[in-house]
Simulated assay, not measured.
Amino acid sequence: MATRQSVENCIQQCEDALRFATQEYRDASRQEHDSTFDDLHFSTAQMELENAVNTIVILNNSANQQQREQLHRMRLQVQQMQNRLILLNHDR
Rank of each mutant, 00 (worst) to 15 (best):
Q77I: 03
S29T: 10
T22G: 09
V53N: 08
Q31D: 10
Q77S: 11
T22Y: 06
Q12F: 06
L59V: 11
R30Q: 11
F37D: 15
E32I: 15
Q80R: 15
I58Y: 07
Q77D: 07
A52Y: 00
A21C: 06
F20Y: 05
S43Q: 12
I56G: 01
Q67L: 10
F42L: 08
F42E: 01
L40R: 12
E48L: 07
E8A: 07
E69L: 06
L76G: 08
D16W: 05
I11Y: 01
L40G: 11
A21D: 00
D38E: 10
Q12A: 05
C10P: 03
F37A: 15
R19P: 06
M47A: 15
L71E: 02
L49D: 00
N60P: 00
D16F: 07
V78M: 00
F37Q: 14
H72S: 14
C14A: 10
D38V: 08
C14D: 00
Q66M: 04
L76F: 12
V57W: 05
Q67P: 08
E8R: 07
Q77G: 02
V78N: 01
E48K: 10
I58W: 12
R75I: 01
N51L: 10
R19E: 13
S43R: 09
N64W: 05
A28W: 02
I58G: 07
L76W: 09
L18R: 00
Q5Y: 13
Q66Y: 02
L76K: 14
L59M: 11
F37N: 14
N64D: 09
Q23K: 14
E15S: 05
F37R: 15
A21M: 05
L40H: 12
V57G: 05
E50H: 12
S6K: 06
E24C: 05
V7Y: 02
Q31V: 13
D16I: 07
A52C: 07
S35A: 13
L40K: 11
A45K: 02
V57S: 09
E32A: 12
A52S: 08
A45C: 08
Q79S: 10
D16E: 11
D34H: 13
L49R: 02
V7S: 05
A63Y: 01
L71R: 01
I56L: 05
T55G: 03
Q23R: 09
Q66H: 02
Q46R: 15
A21T: 01
Q80H: 13
T55K: 11
Q23Y: 14
